[in-house]
Design a protein around this nucleic acid. Structure first.
Lengths: 244, 244
DNA sequence: CATAATCTTTACCAACTGGTCAGAAAAATT
DNA sequence: AATTTTTCTGACCAGTTGGTAAAGATTATG
């Protein structure tokens, strides 16, 4: 059995599984009928080649998009990265947009997963610090995904604005409520739950999105940046949440 | 007298002044001789038109670049935004790169200014919290500059990597030293100075760079986001720095 | 193994985009 | 007012890029 090309751990297992499942002929489905692919309705089997190639292409696309942004990326770059020809890429994906949309679509789910894990049952401080740690691990292990996301948001989130005002907001609201309850119960120092969450997002993602800057500043000791960051952030959030 | 088109306050006065001064015929200077401009050597006077147009163009360029990134921006977009024709833009600036470089060149200075203001003489906690506040004000008042910078770093800082390993690192080192001294003197709780600075950068810039997300999550109360952020960040850093 | 289905490539196109150029228009200078 | 200098524009070009078409190669299937 082979696992994702991207996933050193199994964090993103969901990612390529999703790819495999609902991706079969993403692009060519509705818009125009490439006869060879996607007669919608019938359950068509996914060949080995399809699975491998779409996966390789998405992996290459993630590489390129996260490095150069959408407009800065060309299909040729993706093709080279995936060791395929440009038309071959376009055989599997209708367009550049399709690939990009495909990647973004499932990004937010992955993104939100660590937040979902926060449980009202656990110890408040540990729950939140655990979240910080999971988020930092994601920044370390999946910087490409983080940068792709950052790029999208920076441009005003044109493709995922609905997911932001929808699922993201809903989940954030619900977790903010949990945090607020903890505060009301005196288990946590008073903090604005939303801005607490923003602080967690920003400080952790910083180590992925602004890695060049971090490394430039830290110089030689940069290789320890994630261990240092973990200790620092744990201390910081703990101090804020337990202050008298 | 007229002030910068961009600067509601005078924070960035340095910016357009610099533009006016060392910008006279940035592009066309060395590379190829447009006879009309830039006979290097002689001190040529800057006409009113030159001043106004270059300023308008840089302002438009900042608008467009910060919104779409370098590759996502076209000279035509900048031209439209500046209400000029494309060739007219290229009369003042040699190339798209020149405009971009021009903007980036002075960005870091502005960026670092608030950090420079940290004084070893003042009260440690107030000095640092003051820095947080200044940085947050910059995020609020100059989001375009912040996004331009974020875009550049996200792409790996190809144009300003030298400034990162140079001036940025030098200044950060020196301020980290100041902070370390404070800690050694028992005036501040123990923190990693570098990661403290990273936390300040990330949390404050978040409100500029990820504004769409912040607004999506906060919904109606989003208009208060900067006041809330200020209170929250002040509390957070104060708690960390004064913890027992 | 023949045939159908899937996959891949070569050649190509149209739109876009960065940039040029020759001269027209407008300002400044005399 | 004449002329020189600066500013501006329309037409144009070459390279890039997203995407297509059709035929060739490969793989699966009866």
């Amino acid at each position: 059995m082979f696992f994702s090309v991207f996933s050193p751990f199994d964090f993103f297992a969901s990612f390529d599984q999703i790819v495999k499942i609902d991706m079969q002929f993403c692009g060519s489905s509705a818009r125009k009928d490439k006869p060879e692919l996607a007669r919608s309705g019938t359950t068509k089997k996914v060949t080995r080649i399809q699975r491998e190639k779409t996966e390789a292409i998405l992996n290459a696309a993630l590489d390129v998009f996260s490095k150069h942004g959408f407009r800065g990326s060309t299909i040729d770059m993706i093709a080279t990265n995936a060791q395929l020809s440009k038309p071959n890429i376009l055989y599997y994906f209708d367009s550049k947009e399709t690939m990009h949309a495909q990647l973004l679509e499932h990004l937010l789910d992955t993104w939100l997963e660590p937040l979902e894990q926060i449980s009202p049952e656990g110890d408040p401080v540990d729950e939140i610090c655990g979240y910080v740690q999971r988020k930092l691990e994601m920044a370390r292990d999946y910087p490409r995904e983080s940068r792709l996301f950052a790029n999208e948001i920076l441009q005003g989130a044109p493709h995922i604005i609905d997911q932001l005002t929808g699922p993201l907001r809903t989940l954030t609201d619900s977790k903010a409520l949990v945090i607020q309850r903890w505060i009301d119960d005196g288990k946590l120092a008073e903090v604005d739950p939303y801005h607490l969450i923003f602080s967690i997002w920003s400080t952790t993602q910083h180590y992925a999105d602004f890695d060049v800057q971090v490394q430039a500043v830290l110089g030689d000791s940069a290789n320890l940046r994630f261990e240092q960051a973990q200790a620092h952030l744990d201390m910081m959030f703990r101090a804020m949440l337990t202050r008298k």
